[in-house]
Design a protein around this nucleic acid. Structure first.
Lengths: 158, 158
DNA sequence: TTCGATGCAAACAATTTGCACCGGC
DNA sequence: GCCGGTGCAAATTGTTTGCATCGAA
């Protein structure tokens, strides 16, 4: 935890920024919720617990700054809210999302399935991949069960 | 063109909606710009040429409706604007995006590289894929050239 | 005392909604 | 006359910005 904060502190300082108490509180919230995809508003409310005087604008500014430094990744699931994920070495951005169009659940695949494709991009398109994003929309196993219960075929094609 | 409109008309009618002049004008704009990723505002301005009295809200409502019927695909590149792509049989949603973080250019790969992955999802996760989205962020060949001109190594790793 | 960083409120941009109205069934 | 569909304006939501102020170097 503390080492991670130190590392981020150094990243900030190497670009001429400081790790202010507000920024630290924000980073801590992100660290404590590495698994989640928090929106700025989410972060704001969590940060308020430990630093009640902080303003929403500061949270936005901090997240934007961290995003520029590639400390966090700003992602967007199309629901109109930007979400921010820490980019630690351990929690690589190498995971994909399964979004259920029926119940809205979001599962994750914590593996990177795109290695071969990225190599192909480099070779065929001379495009150097820094990041990627892969989401699937569809019907999750839970809803398929539910559908089967109700109509006996669960929306299967034939 | 006209057949495509007819088809969409039927999709609307089968769900109890009608193809009003405004909706038709909107659909025509989408058909005429199948290759682009138009924002609602873009569509609005183009529709205004053929139906000046139309309101922005109607365009939004129409796009939302078409999106629900899966006639168009609502996508989001993270720039804060939703974009809408027609989903005809020919222009399948089977393409991916290469977004350059340096110059902002967006290239497309007009192939589907995910077939095998989707099969795996069905088998391993019991998840039925209806749609997917794959974007890569990185450095495009143009910027790599430019970078090479300037510093002689173009950001290559070693 | 300088300058980055902050909090607050106002400004903004994209999108949605309330409501009166219009036109076909 | 009912009701879906529309235009307009107002409301909402997520985010950014202007500005006076604060605090460490």
């Amino acid at each position: 935890m503390e080492e991670k904060i130190d590392k981020i502190k150094q990243q900030l300082q190497s670009h001429g920024y400081k790790l202010t108490p507000q920024r630290e509180a924000t980073v801590r919230v992100l660290l404590e919720n590495e698994e989640d995809h928090l929106s700025a508003e989410d972060v704001f409310m969590l940060v308020k617990d430990k630093a009640p005087e902080i303003g929403l604008a500061t949270v936005y500014r901090t997240l934007e700054l961290l995003s520029e430094l590639h400390v966090v990744e700003k992602i967007n699931f199309g629901d109109g809210v930007a979400r921010y994920d820490l980019r630690t070495d351990t929690t690589k951005h190498h995971h994909h999302h399964l979004i259920c169009v029926q119940c809205g659940a979001m599962d994750e695949i914590r593996e990177d399935w795109l290695g071969p494709l990225e190599e192909r991009l480099e070779k065929e398109f001379n495009f150097t991949v820094l990041d990627h994003r892969l989401d699937f929309q569809g019907i999750c196993y839970r809803c398929k069960d539910k559908n089967n219960d109700q109509n006996g075929n669960g929306g299967k094609k034939s």
